[in-house]
Deep mutational scan, measured.
Amino acid sequence: KELVLVLYDYQEKSPREVTVKKGDILTLLNSTNKDAWKVEVDDRQGFIPAAYLKKL
């Protein structure tokens, strides 16, 4: 599985998104959309803007 590093805090703005903190390391589920990547956070799945993430 692929991991990503969170570069900036992000507060979810819709039910399809998830809230993350800078420095979190998350499982990347889908990065086919260049604008928003799907990740898993504490058994929740949701989207975060790709600009907030860096592949490890």
Rank of each mutant, 00 (worst) to 15 (best):
K1F: 12
K1I: 12
K1E: 08
E2H: 12
E2M: 14
E2C: 15
E2D: 12
E2Y: 12
E2F: 12
L3I: 07
L3H: 08
L3V: 07
L3G: 02
V4D: 00
V4N: 00
V4E: 01
V4Q: 00
L5D: 01
L5R: 06
L5M: 10
V6I: 03
V6H: 00
V6G: 00
V6M: 02
L7H: 00
L7V: 06
L7F: 02
L7T: 03
L7C: 08
L7K: 04
L7M: 09
L7S: 02
Y8W: 13
D9A: 06
D9Y: 07
Y10P: 01
Y10M: 02
Y10Q: 01
Y10D: 01
Q11C: 12
Q11W: 14
Q11G: 07
Q11L: 12
Q11R: 11
E12M: 15
E12F: 13
E12P: 13
E12R: 14
E12T: 11
E12C: 14
K13A: 10
K13I: 07
K13R: 13
K13C: 10
K13P: 06
K13N: 09
K13E: 07
K13Q: 13
S14C: 10
S14A: 09
S14N: 14
S14Q: 08
S14I: 05
P15M: 09
P15D: 12
P15W: 08
P15S: 11
P15K: 09
R16E: 14
R16Q: 14
R16A: 14
R16V: 12
R16F: 15
R16M: 14
R16P: 06
E17V: 05
E17D: 06
E17N: 07
V18M: 14
V18T: 04
V18E: 01
V18F: 15
V18L: 15
V18H: 04
V18I: 15
T19C: 06
T19V: 04
T19E: 03
T19L: 04
T19D: 03
T19F: 06
V20N: 00
V20R: 00
V20P: 01
K21T: 07
K21G: 03
K21I: 06
K21P: 00
K21H: 10
K21C: 11
K21L: 06
K22R: 13
K22V: 05
K22Q: 10
K22N: 03
K22M: 08
K22D: 01
G23I: 02
G23R: 03
G23Q: 04
G23E: 01
G23F: 04
G23M: 03
G23L: 03
G23K: 00
G23D: 04
D24R: 11
D24T: 10
D24Y: 08
D24W: 15
D24L: 09
D24P: 00
D24K: 06
D24M: 15
D24F: 07
D24G: 04
D24Q: 15
I25P: 01
I25F: 04
I25R: 04
I25L: 06
L26E: 00
L26V: 13
L26D: 00
L26C: 13
T27C: 10
T27D: 03
T27H: 10
T27A: 08
T27W: 13
T27G: 06
T27L: 14
L28C: 08
L28T: 01
L28P: 00
L28Y: 02
L28M: 03
L29V: 11
L29C: 05
L29W: 04
L29D: 00
L29Q: 02
N30H: 07
N30F: 07
N30W: 08
N30I: 08
N30Y: 07
N30C: 14
S31V: 05
S31Y: 08
S31L: 04
T32C: 14
T32W: 10
N33E: 10
N33W: 09
N33T: 07
N33K: 08
K34C: 14
K34A: 13
K34E: 11
D35R: 13
A36P: 03
A36T: 13
A36G: 08
A36R: 14
A36M: 15
A36D: 08
W37N: 01
W37Q: 00
W37R: 00
W37S: 00
K38S: 08
K38E: 15
V39T: 00
V39R: 01
V39I: 08
V39Q: 01
V39A: 02
V39M: 03
E40S: 10
E40C: 14
E40A: 13
V41G: 06
V41K: 15
D42H: 12
D42N: 14
D42S: 10
D43A: 10
D43C: 13
D43K: 11
D43T: 10
R44L: 06
R44S: 05
R44T: 06
Q45M: 10
Q45F: 08
Q45R: 09
Q45A: 11
Q45I: 14
Q45E: 11
Q45W: 11
Q45T: 13
Q45Y: 08
G46V: 15
G46E: 09
G46R: 05
G46P: 03
G46T: 10
G46L: 15
G46A: 12
F47M: 07
F47R: 03
F47G: 02
I48W: 02
I48Q: 02
P49C: 08
P49F: 07
P49L: 07
P49W: 08
P49T: 04
A50T: 09
A50K: 08
A50C: 10
A50P: 11
A50S: 13
A51M: 13
A51C: 15
A51T: 11
A51I: 14
A51K: 15
A51D: 09
Y52A: 09
Y52N: 07
Y52W: 07
Y52S: 04
Y52H: 08
Y52K: 04
Y52G: 05
Y52I: 13
L53G: 03
K54I: 12
K54S: 09
K54L: 13
K54R: 13
K54G: 04
K55F: 08
K55L: 13
K55P: 09
K55C: 10
K55Y: 08
K55S: 06
K55H: 07
L56Q: 05
L56D: 01
L56K: 02
L56G: 01
